[in-house]
Write a protein that binds this DNA or RNA. Sequence first.
RNA 1: GGCUGGGUGGCAGAGUGGUUAUGCAGCGGAUUGCAAAUCCGUCCACGCCGGUUCGAUUCCGACCCUAGCCUCCA
Length: 469
Amino acid sequence: MLQIYNSLHNRKEEFVPIEPNKICLYVCGMTVYDYCHLGHARVMVVFDMVYRYLQTAGYEVTYVRNITDIDDKIIKRANENNEPFTELTERFIAAMHEDEAALGILKPSVEPRATGNIPEMIGMISQLIEKSYAYVGSNNDVYYSVAKFEDYGKLSGRKLEDLRAGERIAVDQVKKDPLDFVLWKAAKPEEPAWDSPWGRGRPGWHIECSAMAQKILGDRFDIHGGGHDLQFPHHENEIAQSEACIGHQTVNYWMHNGFIRINDEKMSKSLNNFSTIRQVLEDYRPEEVRYFILNSHYRSPLNYSQEPLDAARAALTRLYTALRGLPVDQITDLGNAPVDSEQEQRFRAAMDDDFNTVEAISVLFELAREINRQRTDENIAGAVKAAALLKKLAGILGLLNTDAEAWFKGQSHVDSDGLSDDEIETLIQQRTEARTNKDWTACDALRDELKAKGIVLEDGPGGTSWRRG
RNA sequence: GGCUGGGUGGCAGAGUGGUUAUGCAGCGGAUUGCAAAUCCGUCCACGCCGGUUCGAUUCCGACCCUAGCCUCCA
């Protein structure tokens, strides 16, 4: 039985889909004015994991992740670059797709763009005005009247008076209430704009998600996710908009993933420590980043530094070592995995418990040990069986998708002085001859030479294998 | 100030009212020409003070420390 921590009630709740065996999932995607950073990577990986797991749990999942391709930051950046905003957004959407592909993120079912759904947004704003939840300001901006929505604050656990007590809200003469937020922004000359009943302008950020979610998923859907910081005000405002417009609760479960810190500091512009996905991928392999993210609970804060990434590499090396040398076609044939095994049950129980990937991963290591044991006992059939299960379960997390041999021989961040596979094989061949002659001095010299270039040798009963470590 | 979380062994990081997390690192053993890898065994733990309990790291309360949000932010 799947349990999900619902941010709406701050507790784990049994998950009951609206329609049996079907799940509609909406996740707030990124605003495309720059390269994706590690925080985006976490959202991508976490909800990719959720998407994959729900599918293997037997659900038909419609996964919507939007792209915000019009907003103030985009306009500002496009102006700085002196280019049309669409050129800017197209470039970073392409970059985002590259990053996703690198990290092994499955494509969402639908990836709507804000600019492709302006009529729906205008329609929703019109309804909100009709129902008196919104008003047109003297500057032709349209605002949502927060005080009109009784439940305002229910997601973030805030009361209006508490929010008003905060001194950080800018005073604005046009708004009736400083907490009111913009639904439609009148365009200044030269700004990208769309026609609307209130003049030319563009939608506010919050209405984008409300409108796109309703358009694609309907008046009520199962899960809405996003980064923790979006809980307030973004998701709070979405609730205010959607529920005021539709007239009832629209989202059953809210999921928020925790933040990533960099060397124990908040990622921020002022600290200039924004690590983009592509920067990180210069030093680490995508699967290492994925493991790093999945090896802590999605709601916990996660600190990015060298050690946990190195640990991720070591952990994956252990898992791949278990798979190495086993017949690839047999272990990738999931039909060889035992059905309804005790390990799979524990794996799924962990995942059912609010996506406890960390505990699920521990099952992976138990399987690795099992494989190694069987292999020591020369029970290859048993090892294959366990390996097929390991592949299957790891696959649910999007891990161990590489062929083991390719993993070990692939480039790592350690500079291997550019030795080619053939050069390495040749040196190993020389060493094997020395070994046969029991010329241990020559033997060890060759091994040391390779080690200095980042190549680790392992002598086994079937000969010498190597890896770039 | 308001609202959420969190404090676990050398590090990372789960979890549990009484019994093994897991990975890396350490120690002992097996294996190996020596290593590496692997297997077996093993050390190291639950912020502080009270309470509930036969028994609490796990539940409750206070305290200390810490993170996030309250402004754009994944």
